[in-house]
């Protein structure tokens, strides 16, 4: 399944009509040990680029931006209970939210795996 990435190190993957969103393994590694995650409530709507979630390491807090516009239909309570999952499986079990997109075309503006890898290595 194709995963697309933003320049802010979020990833988006299609799951039926929904999009699953998380932060990249590269971002998790840069953050270090994640100790706290704040996710939005189900039903909240975002425009692309809005502050959507917060991840905190021992050192600092970082904002996670909505990579795509839409409504939150599910949040991953497991990652809130155990933020360290983000360091273990950022691309899988540590997904953040599922969004019902309001503008699917936005995903076309993102980077694919190869482009993101190149971007992450050079930024």
């Amino acid at each position: 399944m194709t995963v697309m990435y933003t320049k802010d190190h979020e990833w988006v993957r299609a799951d039926g009509e929904l999009y699953v969103i998380g932060i990249s393994a590269h971002a998790a590694e840069q953050l270090g040990d994640v100790v706290f995650v704040e996710l939005p409530d189900v039903g909240k709507t975002f425009s692309k680029g809005d502050d959507m979630a917060v991840v905190e390491s021992v050192k600092a807090a970082s904002d996670v931006y909505a990579p795509i516009s839409g409504e939150v239909v599910e949040v991953n309570a497991a990652v809130v209970d155990e933020p360290a999952k983000i360091n273990e499986d950022a691309m899988g079990a540590a997904w953040f939210v599922k969004i019902r997109p309001s503008n699917k075309a936005e995903i076309d503006e993102m980077m694919d795996e190869a482009a993101y890898k190149d971007f992450a290595e050079n930024s």
């Binding site: 270090g32 040990d33 100790v35 390491s57 021992v58 050192k59």
Partner: peptide, 12 residues
């Protein structure tokens, strides 16, 4: 150095 490969949590 802000951290080594061990990471802040394990260093602490």
């Amino acid at each position: 150095p802000v951290q080594y490969p061990l990471g802040v949590m394990k260093e602490h």
